[in-house]
Simulated assay, not measured.
Amino acid sequence: MTSEKQTRVVVLLGSLRASSLNRRIAETLRTEAPEGVVVEIAEGLGEVPFYNEELDGTEIPAAAARLRDTVATADAVLAVTPEYNGTMPAVLNNAIDWLSRPYGQGAIVGKPFAAVGATPTPYGGKWSHEHARHSATIAGARVVEDIVVSEPAVDGDPLEDPAAVARLVGALRSLVEHQAASTAA
């Protein structure tokens, strides 16, 4: 019996709301993930304190340690996020801050990273996704620039649109293919 390695993608959710559209997108990606791909939502981002170097010592807060451990063992990271006031939500920025430390050795360093999601605006969260990619790049992630899925939710639920779901699953597939190609290289 041949056992093929599964690719583990950790989702950083930019919305803390239990029934948010972006959480539902993440759950859809978990359900619709390609064969051999496991999607894990990093839970508890709201419990991670704002990054403060004084807290980042020998006994870092448990929620921050869990986040680091979850991402450190992942093959890739996908931010699924709305947009708040033209940028990424603070909870996502804070997660990236914690994952970037210690400088040059953080849990996100070298991980393939992409950002997707939806907002109830005509822009679909494009600035949030740009800012998340920029921040992840500075943190040391390998951002996959050609993955851009910003779904506007103005005219309804994008998860009821098979084409929108296909674009989101396609973004996950592209992230995994990028991860596989970079691992093989």
Rank of each mutant, 00 (worst) to 15 (best):
S100H: 06
G104W: 04
T70C: 06
L55W: 10
L13C: 04
P122Y: 11
T87Q: 12
S19T: 15
P34R: 09
G125W: 01
R101L: 00
E40D: 12
V71W: 03
P82L: 02
S128P: 08
Y84V: 06
V80N: 02
A74N: 03
A95S: 13
G124R: 12
E40Q: 12
R17I: 08
R101K: 10
A95I: 13
G86R: 06
N85F: 05
I108R: 02
E43T: 14
I25D: 00
T121K: 04
Y103T: 14
L92V: 10
P122D: 13
A18M: 09
F50K: 13
E27C: 05
A115G: 10
M88D: 07
V71S: 04
G14L: 02
E27Q: 14
V91E: 14
P49L: 09
V80K: 02
G36A: 11
V109D: 08
A62K: 15
S100W: 04
V77K: 07
V116Y: 09
E59K: 12
P120D: 12
A118H: 03
E83A: 05
Y51P: 02
W127D: 12
D69C: 11
A118W: 02
R24G: 00
V38T: 13
V38Y: 10
A72N: 14
R23W: 02
V116H: 14
A64I: 04
T119H: 02
L67W: 12
E47F: 05
L78W: 03
A74T: 00
V38Q: 15
V77E: 07
V38H: 12
I60Y: 07
A64C: 10
L99A: 03
A90G: 15
Y84K: 08
E27P: 02
V37G: 06
P82G: 04
A74D: 01
L55I: 05
G57R: 02
R68L: 03
A95K: 08
L29S: 05
T81R: 00
P102C: 15
D69H: 12
F50A: 14
R66W: 11
V116R: 12
A62Y: 12
Y123E: 13
T87E: 09
R17V: 10
T70Y: 01
